[in-house]
Amino acid sequence: MRNTAFFSMRNLRLAMLSAGALVFLAPYIWMISTAAKSREEIFSSSLTLLPQHWALWENLAKALTRVPMGQLLWNGLVVCGLIFFFQVVIAIPCAYAMAKLKFRAARTMMTLVMLGLLIPIHATALPIYVALNKAGMLNSYFALSAPFFISVFGIFLFLQFFRAMPDDLIAAARLDGMSELAIVNRVIVPNAWPAVTAFAIFSVVAHWNDLFWPLIVITGSERATPPLGLLFFRAAEAGDDYGALMAATLIITLPLVAAFLLAQRRFIEGITLTGLKG
């Protein structure tokens, strides 16, 4: 009896999930472990998960002093905030119009959105770079965020969500005397939180971790985003102080991890509600 209980479906499922989780967590755990090791220990031949001499504070101190870590995090916050704000402000009215209003160009717009989903940033990077360069706007928050203000993915996600909203609700709002703008502000947005939170994860995670675009438009550390800062750090340290590098990585990934853990329930709700998986 005890054997059957031990190998029950539930335990089996848990074991498989744990194994999967461990595979995904392994790099992160190794990063934390390395961040706590001294330089000698990292390059020693013995591999241990737990460091023999704790050097976490020294590594953190190095990470915080050798690059302007505060500035990097602030830049990341500003860029992600700007991008997310404009994406939502543009995508929500656009998706509302396409989902609930009847107009002739609706089909064409839908096709354009689908096409937009297919074009990667790398295809348009060069022309945008040239334009920003000509305008003399490289090395600015604007250069970092503006190319992402219109998110076709956001439009698509909100579109799917709004389509499921009852038409009667919008008809009632119109009869109550609301303008189309008021309907978006007072009826659509307050009921679209699950979609907004889901979109927030995709948007913030993508742009916080993005290295490709900042690498193109930013040259100095003044406007560098966290991943770019890491790159500068590696270059400055000639790439051998892995303890400090991992400590810096830890600091940079920590805000995302903390934000996710704090809002975990709402995020999961958002993802399941929109039927999207990350």
Partner: peptide
């Protein structure tokens, strides 16, 4: 909105 008509919907359509 200008017609001064009120409507009750089958789904109630409450906010």
């Amino acid at each position: 909105a200008d017609r001064n008509v009120a409507m009750v919907f089958q789904s109630y359509a409450l906010y």
